[in-house]
Design a binder for these strands. Structure first.
Lengths: 121, 121
DNA sequence: CTAACTGTACTAGAACAGTTAATACAGTTT
DNA sequence: AAACTGTATTAACTGTTCTAGTACAGTTAG
């Protein structure tokens, strides 16, 4: 479900956040679906429950999930979170495209990249 | 020339790396041009020379600059470094575009983003 | 030649972030 | 009642980042 890369310089809780957010925005984890419990996911990934809790906390702050003590944590179809994420991504893509153009990547090459991604839908 | 953001979670030496790489890639720092000395840049930014040295070391490892003891450090028009950076950026852009599409960003919106960047050249 | 510059190297320490560990408590489910 | 849930707290360990101080050798300008 989630895979960790210990060679990655990014902290584990960030990798978990990214992994779960990806599952949610792509619809693999539909709104209302129950996430694995803090302890269960910790055991599955062989890491400390506190690290999972931190990831869940931040995902809840960002509006991607909501947690109910005693019951569990659940995916939350949150439009505000999506809008914020979209804004963030667009800004990053903009910068990268600018650098790629400086690096000599042609307009056609970038368009081809987009078409490629288009077919994957 | 380079600006530091202490609120940024990224380490200072990384911000310096990114800033200098950007100057080099965009041609603002043409091949052969002398970079500020380790001590001069450290004084200008009010940080420790060791931090600058670390940034320069990594930039040299990545092929963006070359350093000559006693003389200084210089921008190095390195095609291999550019190719590696290009590959890295393309991979990231690819992932982001995929996520943006899932977030409901239309093909037209992405194309508009590219055209926008195109006009800046 | 000498003084002031250059990159480079090394050690030591402070500060911080990330992670683990061990408990504990209260609400929910079976 | 037992086993689950999220949540909270405290302590300790580890690695990274950054600063500080010092040193050495090559280069350049006076």
């Amino acid at each position: 479900m989630i895979s960790l890369n210990y060679r990655d310089s990014r902290p584990i809780y960030e990798q978990i956040k990214d992994g779960l957010r990806k599952l949610i925005v792509t619809g693999a984890m539909p709104p209302g679906e129950k996430l694995p419990s803090v302890r269960a996911l910790a055991m599955q990934l062989s890491i400390n429950p506190n690290t999972i809790q931190r990831a869940y906390n931040e995902l809840e702050s960002d509006g991607y999930i909501y947690s109910v003590p005693g019951k569990g944590s659940f995916a939350s179809g949150n439009l505000d979170a999506d809008a914020a994420r979209k804004k963030e991504l667009l800004g990053q893509v903009r910068e990268m495209i600018a650098e790629l153009r400086y690096l000599g990547v042609s307009r056609q090459e970038l368009l081809a990249l987009m078409e490629e991604e288009e077919e994957r839908l």
